[in-house]
Structures are given as structure tokens and as C-alpha cells.
Design a protein around this nucleic acid. Sequence first.
DNA 1: GTTAGTTGGTAGAACGATCTAACAGCAGAA
DNA 2: TTCTGCTGTTAGATCGTTCTACCAACTAAC
Lengths: 344, 344
Amino acid sequence: MKRSVTINDIADHAGVSRSTVSLVLRGNPRISDDTRERVRHSIRELGYTYNRNAANLRSQTSQAIGLIINDLRNPFFTELTASIEEAADARGYFVYLVQSRESPERQNRLVQSLVEHGVAGMIICPATGTDRDLFDRLHLQKTPVCIAVRPWPDERFDFSGPDNFRAGQLAVDALVAQGHRRIAFLGGERGNPSRDDRLAGYFSALQKNGLRFDDALTVASRPTRTSGIDDLEQVLALADPPTAALCYNDFVAISVMHGLRRHGLEPGRDMALIGFDGMPEAEMSHPTLSTILLDAESVGSNAAALLMNRIANPEAAPSRWIETPKLILRESIGTAPDRGTAAL
Amino acid sequence: MKRSVTINDIADHAGVSRSTVSLVLRGNPRISDDTRERVRHSIRELGYTYNRNAANLRSQTSQAIGLIINDLRNPFFTELTASIEEAADARGYFVYLVQSRESPERQNRLVQSLVEHGVAGMIICPATGTDRDLFDRLHLQKTPVCIAVRPWPDERFDFSGPDNFRAGQLAVDALVAQGHRRIAFLGGERGNPSRDDRLAGYFSALQKNGLRFDDALTVASRPTRTSGIDDLEQVLALADPPTAALCYNDFVAISVMHGLRRHGLEPGRDMALIGFDGMPEAEMSHPTLSTILLDAESVGSNAAALLMNRIANPEAAPSRWIETPKLILRESIGTAPDRGTAAL
DNA sequence: GTTAGTTGGTAGAACGATCTAACAGCAGAA
DNA sequence: TTCTGCTGTTAGATCGTTCTACCAACTAAC
């Protein structure tokens, strides 16, 4: 931070006014080639570095946006973050990356701090349990905000996220098409709106296919790298265990695969599995994992685009980008289950 | 950015001077409880938000650090970034996250821009092909810098990273202990200093174990999610293919597993595999992947700690944190190869 | 009754840029 | 000759804070 040479020093050295130097720095065409060169020369001579914060203070602008995610280690958020960084960079913005770690209190603190730092806007993936007040405040102070990934019932903001309801339906339909009739939904944290929507899609598709909903077949848990194993135990212990499962995300699914092997069961053959997210590792598992692709890259770049529009045009009506999920069939979908076939 | 109510408005409203408000905001004890309360009340009343940039301009401070990595999608960098964010947050700092995408030119631009934004310091994972000039400039302008992950021959800066040489040795020793005598080194980009060090460790351990080095057994390639397959093809085509392989990282290793299956070979049984990084997915692959754990979390938190020390104490002698790699044996290490056993 | 020290607060410059309004100097038109 | 308009440049205020130096009022000591 030791800053010594300023625009004033350049002005003195080049024998022009402070204003002129400023105009040169910003490439204003009104400055003659002659002066421009003299100023440029002084800049190199003195080793000047531009102080963007001072400029931003005066001009009330900012090249920074905030990104609040829950957990960078979740590959969906990794992909999201990477694509937002790329989109922001392409438009000359920097990204402040912060993790709320599913704590609404931390999230409040972070949002406040980002506002104090004068970000041009922010992209927020609301933590489970976020209070509405936060968004009331943001709306009040007219901070440009794009809500991402997690559906949030607030029509005042832009939104970019996957269609989780449709995703849930797609997954069930795929398993029903394989002849499955007892289908579990494993993993995900209760109260997580993404899970709720996938679950709602699951219910809806069960109904549409004339299947009975069995409460014992949906198991929730805190998402960790191994939680799927515990979730699986619960449904395997049932008198009439499921022949297939939707897993809250690909992590859970891969963890469930390991759980199955512990019981001497082969994923895909003894239980059909399908995950959500479409993370790259799904293609590398054994058996390869069927999944519902929720294109994080597209969600991210669209969130960035929405935010940029909002910054440029604060009064425009809020808009929504809903990413259509895509079914990716791989080995874990298996073939028709024995019982399923017998029952037909 | 629409900022209206400032410290002046608070001062007027509370009937005190601007200076007093500033002192209250910073919790200075010289202000009487009475005035403090009056000021606090006005702050709430008017809905004031602190402008940290203005404060930073005056006080020549900053709560932001820059983090330059190559590619966030690489799980090692994901983990590194997450842990740096956490360490920075714990100390009241924000992180500007940027990706150089292995382009030295982009990296130069980004560093320059971060300096202009007045970051307190930065953590840099040098892109392959970085020019020394960049660091000369940084050193000249006394920007606090910690180099991370990629070894970089510059004693003027702090460094935090794994011991890649030792890691290479460890991997070879583990395979030799299983009786392997033809060991390949697959993947990684030529010119990447991390790879070079692992390779040097590989050479050194081969020699130590009395094994002949065969140039045909080291294959380099641009790291993608599937490059391991191509690398594998090259060594399988040899008259005398290897019975085991070090893979540049866990990605490459998992990709090699898939390549083996395409040839009807079983990873672990027909070819022993060991990766580098210790990414969580390694535990979830089938067979589970042996790997050399290079603790990204530790590398990250130590990089953050070194940078913070540097910021607090710019004149201290540079220091280095070298993370000791750890061998993690899993199924992919297999058992002694047939030929290996026969040869004994 | 002067002096010295403490307590609580303030005025005005400063940080390093941009913005507004104006100003020479000159060309061309009336 | 005077006026108008353009070109290139500038002085001074300003953005929202902090910093330095100083001050008034009061207490305690000599």
C-alpha cells in the first residue's frame, strides 16, 4: 500500500495540469498527441500506478462484484464460481468470493461488509434459513442483486437457477421407464429449497405414473461426502426396500454406490441410481453415474449477465433465467429390475 | 453505488462534529457514553452505511487480498481457494479471486489490475511460462506477495507448497515395494514446475532402487479430464509395457482407469496406479485410488498466514512452508505383479 | 491564584483521483 | 472589426473518510 507517486507528480513532471493527466489516463481524445506522449513518458519515468479506489470514490463507480456461495468445495458451486469469474472478467469486473457455509448470520455479515466495500452488485446463493429481512434491506438500498441457484420466493430480484422441479420429474420418469416402481429419494438437507423442489418433482412424477408415495423412502441428511451411505442403510433396512433411488446430488449418489458394495450389492444391477448436478466426476465413477445435468456453467454465466444488466439498468423489471435440466443416461441406470419385470 | 447519507449527515443530525462520528464508528473510548449513544441513534435513524473505500483511501489500508490461480475447476485449487478464503475471512480480509488459465499475459494484466485496486497483498500460483519481470516489478514496488503451490526460483518471496520431489519418490518407493520394476509416469504438462519436481523425484527413486530409466515411459500432455487415456495408449503400445504408473494427478489416474478398462484390463490388478493430490474423489473411485496426499488445505492456510505476516511486517526475511506429502494406500496399488513375482 | 494534567471534542488539511465550468487561442463568418 | 464556435487545457471544488493539532472546561496540586 506504500503509495508515493500520484497523478500530481506526473502533472508536475510533464508540465501539465492534474486534469490533463487524468484525461490522458482515461484515453480522452481531446488531448493532443504531443501532450499525451509527454504525459505517457512521465508515467513510465516515475513508475506511476493508478489508484482505482481514489477514482472510484470520486466517480461513484466500482469494478467489483460480490459472490456469496455456501461451500466452494461442492463441485456445482466450483463450476458456478469459475464461470462467474470468467464472465465478470470478460466485462472488466473483479469477483469478491465469500462462503456463507450455510450460516444465515455469516451471510448477513458478509453482505453488509460487501456493501460497505462498495461493490457494484452481488450474486447470492441464499443459505438455508436466510431471513427475508436481508433482502428487504438490499432492496431498500437498491443494491443490484442477482439470486442464484437456490430458488427464493422474491419477485423483486433477478434470478438464475435450474428447474429443480422438472429435474425431479425427469429422474423419476427415467427410472419408471426402466420398470422401477419403488423409488427412493436419498440425501439433501431438510429445508434446502433446491431439495424441496426436486422432491416436489419426484412426488408429482410418482403420481403421474400411478405410483404410491411411501414416506419411508425419502431420507434427508446433512450433506457430507459420506452421508449417502447412512441414508442408504435406512431404506435397505425396510421390509420392502426400493429397487432404485434418486440421490440429492452426484456426491450422494457416489457415496450410495459405496454403501451398496458394502452390502455385496452392485450399483446399477441391484439398485438403479441417478444423481443430480452432472459433475464431471460422475462420468468417471464405476459404474458411470446417470445424472440430471443442471448446467452450473450456464447458470453462472447467466447470473453474471443478469447482474450486469441490472447494474447498467437498475430500474428494469426483474427477469429470471431458468435452466432446463438434461437427463444423462449412464451405466448406473441399470436394466429392468427382476421384481419389476415379474410384476408387469 | 447510489450513496447518499454520509458521516457528515450523521454529524449534523446528532449535533456533533464529523470527527466525533468517525471516532464513534471506530469505537474510540474517548467519546462519552452519552455522545456515543446519540451518534449511534442517528446512524440507525438515517440508515447510514460506512464507506470503507473512502476510509481506506485516507488511511492507506486495505482489507482485500488477491488470489491468482490457474484453474478453479482443478480440485486441488478448489481446496486451496476454499481454505485461503476461510483463513482470510478469519482475519477480516476479503479475497479477490482470479484465474490466469495458464496464460502469463493474462496473469500480468491481472496482477497489474489488482495492484491498481490497492490490495493489501496477493497469493500467486505462477502460470506455466511466467516471466521473471513480473516478480521483479512486484518486488520493486514492495507489494506483499506469497508464491503458492508452484515452486518458483525466487528467494525474495514467501512460499507455501508441497514437496513435489519427495512426493515423486514416495510414489515410486510404494510401487517398488509391491515388486514393480517397470513404472511409467503419465500426464502433466511439459514445463510445469510441479511436474518437473515430481519427475525428478521419480528419477531419483528409480536410481536409488537400481531401476533403469526408460524415456518411453514418461508421457506428457495438456491436462484435461480425459488426457490420461491418451497417455496410457502410448505406453500400452510399447513392446514391454509398464506394470505400474505414477499419474501426474488424481484426475489423470482416474482417467487412466477408464483407459485400462477399454483394453479389458483391470486397474489395480493388471496395472498398479498411484496419483497425486489426494482429492476427495480418489476415495470414491472404483477401485479406490492410491495417492500421494499434497494437503491443499494446509498449503492454502499457510500461504494465507505467510501473506498476513508479510503485510504486518514487510521487512522480515522471506520464509517457506514446505508441506510433507503423505502416501495413502488404497486398492489401486494392487498386489505384486505376476512378472514381478516371477523375476524375484 | 497560577500551573499542570486530564477529559471530551473539534477544525481543517489530507488521501488521489474526477468533475464542472471556464478560459485562452485561433479560424472562419458577418 | 467583432462575433461565434471549436480545440486543448486548466483551476478549484468534490467524493467520504481519517489524521494532526489544538482547544475549552474542569480538576488537583502547589
